[in-house]
Design a binder for these strands. Sequence first.
RNA 1: GUGGGUGUAGCUCAGUUGGCAGAGCACCGGGUUGUGGCCCCGGUUGUCGAGGGUUCAAUCCCCUUCACUCACCCCA
Length: 418
Amino acid sequence: MIQLIRGFKDVLPGEVELWQMIEKTAASLFEDFGFREIRVPILEHTELFARSIGKDTDIVEKEMYTFEDSKSDLVTLRPEATASIVRAYIQHRLYAVDPVQKFYTIGPMFRRERPQKGRYRQFYQINAEVLGAESPLVDAQLIFMLVEFLRRLRVSDTSVHLNTLGCPKCRPAFQKELHRFLSKIKTQLCADCERRKVKNPLRVLDCKVLACREAVADAPAMIDHLCEECKGHFETVQKSLKKLDIQFEIDKRLVRGLDYYTRTTFEIQTGLLGAQSAVAGGGRYDRLIEELGGPVQPAIGFAIGFDRLAEIVSANNISAPEIDLFIATLGEQAKTAAFEWSCSIAVSGIKTEMDFSDKGLKGQMKKADRLGARYVLILGDKEIGEETAVLRNMTTKEQTPVPFEGIVENLKIKLKNS
RNA sequence: GUGGGUGUAGCUCAGUUGGCAGAGCACCGGGUUGUGGCCCCGGUUGUCGAGGGUUCAAUCCCCUUCACUCACCCCA
């Protein structure tokens, strides 16, 4: 048997209703905050991701689905959405009329990692991005919106983690100091951290190995080395969050895996997903638009892990959709009549089903019951002879005759009003 | 990429120190020749994940492989 690709998954009916509910919740809330939906391609030039995410990141180094198409263009299945949104902003000069543009998008991303709980090779994200806005109030508003989104979905056991990564003015000095510190303690670091020390020193602070944790306990923190502007920005973000009654904790070790982040970064964590504690993450990327060849415009955004979210949203009150009418038939003549009627009734917005096999009445009643039919129209030889069908209310068991004359219109009226 | 656990009916899972493959639920039929849910009776579940090896005999033991799963790594 041909199975689906490892790390990919089918979302089957039953689960799809939950997904639709989450999508609607996001769209409606984000639109209330002035975000508009944007849809960007799943395939982009590899160059776009290499330049935005960073050549030395794990994502670009070993996790992307990259291949040559038939004309030898190097293309990649997107591992994240921000780069494409920024590209669209630049390419279509969306900044020309108003540099401030707010977008959201929902769709699949691809990363070739080893699958585990809450981690798939094709996974879905909901992204929200504000391009062209520098104010720290925007940072706070975005986090507020994210928290409200989770509240609407009744997700419990979540916390907001906040950090700042500084800007090109203050980060280099800090990095130099961090490097000096790491060189001093290098004998105590694990093999992974030896590697990180060169490529992404910030990550060393986030290592889970006990020896490393102890070694970096009093390492310098970015938060203590901010320039005046970054410091002020971060303080305003915190002050604004407090005004909005958003609980958060400063997490000096919160580092993001993508190179483009600057200043504010944040993550929503949960204890419900095992090792994959991040349900959503985001931050500022004030230099990215410019680095991709656009105007000098700051930006901020976040991504929500859709699959992870779906796993922790309490799905108890999602039930299979009921149908309004089931037509049970006996004999060819009845089936033919029911066939025409059912099509005509379904078109008018009434969920209608019938059975096309030659089941007995008992079997058809059973099927109607399983489908959650509110009414069953019974149509056998007797009814054909009398030109009157029988309509059974499945809850009250009450049965009423319905003459063939004008039956479709009568059923439409009756079922719509009940 | 590395390590652990698990693959038996549609689903949840038993099982045999190697000897014809099981239960519950679901499904189908009957009790009710044309009326669902509850009840009673009966029936079908299957490459025992795939390939190879050992053996008179393998679902069981050995090897390989694939998938799922959890963790590392990384991230949403």
